[in-house]
Design a protein around this nucleic acid. Sequence first.
DNA 1: TAGATTGTTAATCGATTAACAATC
DNA 2: TAGATTGTTAATCGATTAACAATC
Lengths: 209, 209
Amino acid sequence: MKKDNISDAVIRRLPRYYRHLDDLHSKGVVRISSSSLGERMDITASQIRQDLSCFGEFGQQGYGYNIMELRSEIGHILGVDKGHRLILIGVGHLGHALAQNFNFSHMGFHVDTAFDISCALIGSSINGITVHSLDELDDYVYAVRPEVAVLTVPKKAAQGMADRLISLGVRGIWNFTNVELSVEDADVFVENVQFADSLLTLSYRISQK
Amino acid sequence: MKKDNISDAVIRRLPRYYRHLDDLHSKGVVRISSSSLGERMDITASQIRQDLSCFGEFGQQGYGYNIMELRSEIGHILGVDKGHRLILIGVGHLGHALAQNFNFSHMGFHVDTAFDISCALIGSSINGITVHSLDELDDYVYAVRPEVAVLTVPKKAAQGMADRLISLGVRGIWNFTNVELSVEDADVFVENVQFADSLLTLSYRISQK
DNA sequence: TAGATTGTTAATCGATTAACAATC
DNA sequence: TAGATTGTTAATCGATTAACAATC
């Protein structure tokens, strides 16, 4: 039974389902039951069925799920077929690493432009992504209307840049600065990648006993 | 009342407490109540008190918490005072970005060595971290006994390298490859940084409505 | 002392798991 | 058909919030 309010816990599991189904699909597996998938992912079959039931009915009694179909359904739920546009703000080492290595298009994102203040970088191109001056940001965003901006700028510039991006109409910020951005607009979403928090969690675990 | 089994939810909030207290401390604030901290962090005062009570009694009735003291208590819980040693495995763009930008020492980690297979990199130095050949990995680990390895190698090499590191005695793997590592040993912890999952979560949110 | 705020117990809320009728 | 497996309801478990006596 389709639900209206999906809990954060469920949403955070969706990409993992997607990844596993993608994997199985590329290995040529055609169908899978919730219990086999659960075993693979180390979660209960119940949870998988419960999670999926928030969005619809994708399986078939006695058969399980068709992998290609379920993969595409979850992809659709995640919005990978929406053709979202994305820009990179900041081309330091991290921004550069993302531009170079991260497979944005596999997640359904179109990226062709990054912005930085460094003259040394402006005009250069990384993996097909050209670096522009931040002076051109406003015009670009008005013209192209990217939905998402990846923020890899220095700490100090983070909040100001976030405000600017939001006022320009960006709806999602993928935030790699270790600053907790304050955002008023309820339609704008910030997804934080907090390296430090992640490492400290690991530090905690290896420190026990 | 001190607890034995701390839930994952609590552990994942600790770094955030630590970060906020660190911030307040560096701003010169001396004391804070659970309610003010809660307001700042957008969580309930109850949750803060409940969380902290898992580890001991750090506050004072009528006063609240001494920031310097609580910060150092939480730092201690997280193990930032343990002097953990860390190595980088893989010096591609991402490894390079981490070596260059990430403040490992602020998290209490000692890092001076990275490993890679590329001859072009071996012998070079990034931000005081020298790059060695992977041929030297075993000797180094036996000699120095680093607790944590940061894994930023290509997908294909991930599981093999993880196995090797674990057999050498590494206890924590900070995993940036988008491979779900399989680890038998219950004393070894893997902390995943799944960029793709994070971006897809954002994709989901901006796709609603 | 009076006011503030803790640590903890109890109540509530939400998420996970189990069970099972429905059905492919 | 018989076996397998779904989607969903109910039961359980755990996490969050509220309340309050204790006390600085």
